[in-house]
Each structure stands twice: as C-alpha cells, then as structure tokens.
Design a protein around this nucleic acid. Structure first.
Lengths: 335, 335
DNA sequence: CTGAAAGCGCTTACAG
DNA sequence: CTGAAAGCGCTTACAG
C-alpha cells in the first residue's frame, strides 16, 4: 500500500524548501537549472503527482465539467457523451455525469449541486419535463454563479447561453421535398416527442413542405400503445405512402406496425427515421435515417464551453448548428 | 454575478469566529443551541454551501468515484452507467466517467490518472485489448494506492478485487438445453466477442450442453464482413435450426442474414440473442433475448465499492453474480 | 537563486 | 460555550 508522495516529503528528501520544489516542478525561471533537474529527477523517481484537490483549492478551479443527460439509454445521448469525453480528455478535464431521467426535480437538484463549485462549466440537455414546464430558473441560477453553461441538442430554450443543436426543421422539410420530388403523394409523420422543442421543429419542417392541412397525417403520442394505434391508423386506414419518424421509438414502431399489417417497405411504404446507424443498417429492410452526428454535437458543445471557461469568448450566447445528413438505405430504395 | 459565500464571510457577519460557524453548521454539541440557530439562519439566507474542494482537501476524500467504460455506444454499458449513477446519487457521490474505447493504452492512462487522487474508488470494465494482452498491472497499481476497485461485467480477470458479473456459461447452457428439449437438433452459435472472457464462457456453456464436437456450428469474427460470411455459412450451408448469438452485433447480423437468404424466423430458424429490450421487441419478428439486468449490475458494483470505501468490508475480493432471464419473444415461438 | 509566510476554505484538537 | 491555532497540499508574492 503506497500513498502518493507530497511536496513536503520531496522537499525534506532534497533538503530544500517546499516553495523551491513547487517552483522547480513548474519550471519557474526563479530556480537554477541544477535544482530544477535534481527536483524533477526525484519527483519522477517517486512518481510525484500534485494532489489535484489542493491545486483546485488554490486555483479556485475544479478541472471538471458537469454533463446533464436526460436519458443515457438513448443511444444518441450516449454518443454525445462520447464526443464530450473525447474532447475533455484532450484538455485534461474530468467529466462528471449526471442523469436527470427526464425529471424536472432531479435536474433542479443537480443544478443546485453544481452551484456549490464542483465544476467549472456545465453542458445540459434539459429534461422533457423541464421543457414542458418552461421553467429554466435553475439554469439561470447556474449562470448567475458565473459558471458557464452550454445547452446541447434541446436548444429552443429561453436562456441566453451558448447552444449546440441541429437544424431540425430543415431536415424534415428537405426529406418531405425529396419524397414529393420522387412522386410520393401521401406523406405522414410519426412522433413520440411532439411536445419537445426538437420534435415540434421537425413537425414544422414537414408541414411547411406540404401544401395544405388536408395533406397532414400525424401519429403522435408519448405512450407506446397510443402511438401504436395512431401509427396503425395512418398506415392502414389513411394508407400513407411514406412516413417520416422523428425519433427512435416512432421509427421502430412504424417498422413493426408495417410488418404486422403486411405493409411492405419500401414497396408500399417509404420510411425515414431518426435512429442510430448500428440498428438502421441491420433492419429488414434497412432504414433510411438522419445521421445527427452526435459525437460532433458533443465535441462542439465542449468547445463552446471551453472558450467560456478560458474567457476566450464573452458576451451573449450564440447557437451553433451541426450539420446532418440523410443516409439512404433500403427503406427508400425507389426514391 | 454572485459567488458562493464562505465561512469566513459568514463569521464576520455574525461577529463570531470561523470555528464557531463551522461547528454550528455541523451541529457540534460544543455550540449553544442559540448560536447554532443564528448561524444556520444566516447560512440558509445566503444559501451557504461548503466548498467541496476545501472539504475534500481536509478529509483526504474526493467524494467522487471513477467509472471506466469500454464503449458507451453499447447500450449495455449505458444502462450499467445509469445504475451506477442512481446509486451514487443516493450516497451523494459524484461519478466521473472515462471512456477507454476498448483501448489498452487509454485505459492505462486513465488508471495512472486515477492514482493521483481524483477519486475514492473505481469501477472498471476492462477494455477488449487489455483482456487480450492479459496485462492488468495498471489495475493492480490502482489497488496499491489503496483505492478500491470493483470489476463489472468483464470479470474473468486475474486481479484479486471484487467483481460483479453474470453467469455467462449457465445462460447459454440453459438456452441450449431448452432448444434441445423442444426437439431442435442443429444448434449453432454466432459471436463477435469470442476472444473476450464473457464471450468464451458463453461458448463454453453452449458446448457443454451439446454431445459432441460434430454438433458444433460456430460463426465467430470480430470483423463485420467475416462475421457475415461465417453466419451465412452456418445458416445456409449447415442449415442450423437454431442460433444463439452472444452479443448485439452477432444478433443483428443473424437477423439480417436470415432475411437476406429467405430463411424464416422462427419457422426455419429459432433465434436467441444478447440485445436490449428496446430493439428486441420491435424487430420483425421480435427476438428472444437474454436480459442481463444492466442497471442491476451497475447498482451492485456500486454497492460493493461503497462497502470498501467505507471500510465495511475487508479482505480479499468476492465475485457477485447478478441473475439474468431469458425473455421469450416471437423468434422462439414454437419452443 | 532560495526560503519563510500567507492563503485557498474548510475541520478539529486544544486552550480559555 | 467560544475562539485561536494548526493543518490538509498546494502556489506565489515578497524578503533576503
């Protein structure tokens, strides 16, 4: 059982003062090259590492950033975290992960905690419940404590901070246009996130590409059984020829409901979904999907945060849009 | 822009000493009830929170645990993290997440970092590369620094610490027996993790349930294209009637290859996979899968770690086995 | 070039 | 019951 050697012990072994050791290790010009060398050699020998807690206390920094994730089982957020972690690692920052489970109360607790000085900055995708309540005071509160905040993915939130998201509206506008161009007439949309900002914007994109309300076919529900019924209705009764799905659940549901009702994809139904590559490619048929570049969203959010932490950027928040792409697979083969 | 009030400032406002404030806030019997009340009221008014860094420095604790995750895009690990986080939250501990991306070098770097005192304990699922190399010195090293370590999921590692995993061998033994009992003769296995401990044990379970080597049909490759070819071979050429898949990729691959070759599930082929509920249920047909209880693995691992951190358990490491269950869906309908 | 001192924000043994 | 002092492990302005 070893325990890390301290500056004090190092100083004693070298017969110099603690200040000298500290300065030597930090390559201070005040210290003679000889001493620097002696100190560094012994430090290396004993594998000296400064105690991060002590350094943090001195510097009033934590060397840590906090990430609030609504739901880690959503592979999108898992990938975002991956991007964040990779970027943090480059900067030598630690990432503390908090999972809100889409709960407003939990998110508030976490925010409260974060103001006591655990972290130098925070990345947040607000919980579903929070978006519904439209209560962002706890986030404002973090900002008041001078802790930089960047919102990722769920960005249409009325708080003046940096944001990193995707162009939800354009994606579904373009997708709808694409289908129209190839002659598809009856285009529907399925969603289980219609009450969320990103969900709303996707619906907007779809609607604005269509000509009139008569053309809208929407299956929307956050409840599995209700979503199933509504999806079945627009597939079987309304006989839509193409369906845009705005999230993982609605995509899988449409895929499944089509199968159960003997609707052949892509012959009878073109399908475009929001789903991760690893699943999309193996479905039968494989499903055309929107690649949201989640790692990139994480990286960009981290970059924004770093600029604020380092004070390289000041003034009001900006919103950054990460580019996305439609990956064409079998479910839109004839398009 | 506020900044947290300190003990010192509180003391000045109250005209008492810093020690008195500190003791009052910690309900010390040394302090008079009156003073305690006065102090607490002002503290509440100013929303005083002790600076965690200072507290940590004093106590030589970090109030933080580290989690090394090989690959967060694997929904299994995402769910484990969820279980860990929930448990940590109850204890008021922060969770620092590190992603090794299955890399030995990265895992070593992280381990090195962890010995400098960032965390009070570590949960590790070792990287694939590390398992291959069988080099666990960096993990031993963490233990030497008196930092408790618990290995989760990937547990057949020769390091004497606590471990939390599942009974991989039994799962596939039982699954094979189940198929045999219902009259299935030609049973195969597909895997992309045959070089990993958990993968090996699953293969062992399968083999030990069979009668002779002649009965083995194994498609094993970590490379997508090669796995596809091998899976195709045992499905089409060897005409296995049932297939056990030991991981997400091999499950999806088998599902897809069956489709491409007009093999009907479950009529011509029974399929049992390791895959998450969210995907399994929506496949067409839905796929019978092993529920590994990932959240539970995370919770248990965290519990083990806590016992060590709090010194409630001493002595050599024990291995805990989390129960699993086979969830029967359409892909084994007639079984 | 080296070292003593102060201080980051706390806690706690000790004195009064 | 209250407070001064020491100390956790560092860094840095200041003195010599």
């Amino acid at each position: 059982m070893k325990s890390r050697i301290t500056l004090k012990e190092l100083a004693k072994l070298l017969n110099v003062s603690v200040s000298t050791v500290s300065k030597a290790l930090n390559d201070s010009p005040e210290i003679s090259p000889k001493t620097i060398q002696r100190v560094k050699e012994l430090a290396a020998l004993h594998k000296y590492r400064p105690n991060p807690t002590a350094v943090n206390l001195k510097s009033s920094k934590s060397g840590t950033i906090g990430v609030i994730i609504p739901n880690i089982s959503n592979s999108f957020f898992a990938s975002v975290l991956s991007g964040i972690e990779a970027q943090a690692q480059k900067e030598g920052l630690q990432v503390i992960t908090y999972i809100s489970n889409e709960s407003y109360e939990r998110e508030k607790q976490i925010s409260e905690l974060l103001t006591s000085g655990y972290v130098d900055g925070v990345l947040i995708a607000v919980a579903e419940e929070t978006q519904r309540k439209k209560d962002f005071e706890h986030i404002q509160n973090i900002v008041h404590f001078n802790i930089p905040v960047v919102l990722y993915d769920r960005t249409d939130i009325d708080v003046p901070v940096d944001k990193v998201g995707i162009d939800d509206k354009k994606i579904f506008f373009d997708a709808t246009r694409l289908l129209q161009t190839s002659g598809v007439k009856r285009i529907g949309l399925a969603t289980s996130i219609h009450h969320m900002g990103v969900g709303k914007r996707r619906i907007e994109g779809y609607k604005s590409a269509l000509h009139s309300e008569e053309d809208f076919f929407i299956a929307n529900s956050a409840k599995t059984e209700s979503l199933r019924e509504k999806t079945e209705k627009i597939l079987v009764k309304d006989r839509v020829e193409a369906l845009l799905c705005s999230d993982f659940e609605s995509t899988m549901m449409a895929y499944r409901v089509a199968y159960e009702n003997g609707i052949s994809i892509p012959k009878d139904l073109k399908l475009i979904g929001f789903i991760n590559k690893e699943v999309a490619e193996y479905l039968t048929p494989s499903i055309t999907y929107v690649n949201q570049n989640p790692e990139k969203i994480g990286e960009k959010a981290m970059e924004q945060l770093l600029m604020r932490i380092k004070g390289k950027k000041e003034g009001k928040g900006v919103e950054e849009v990460v580019s996305t792409e439609l990956v064409h697979l079998e479910s839109t083969n004839t398009v």
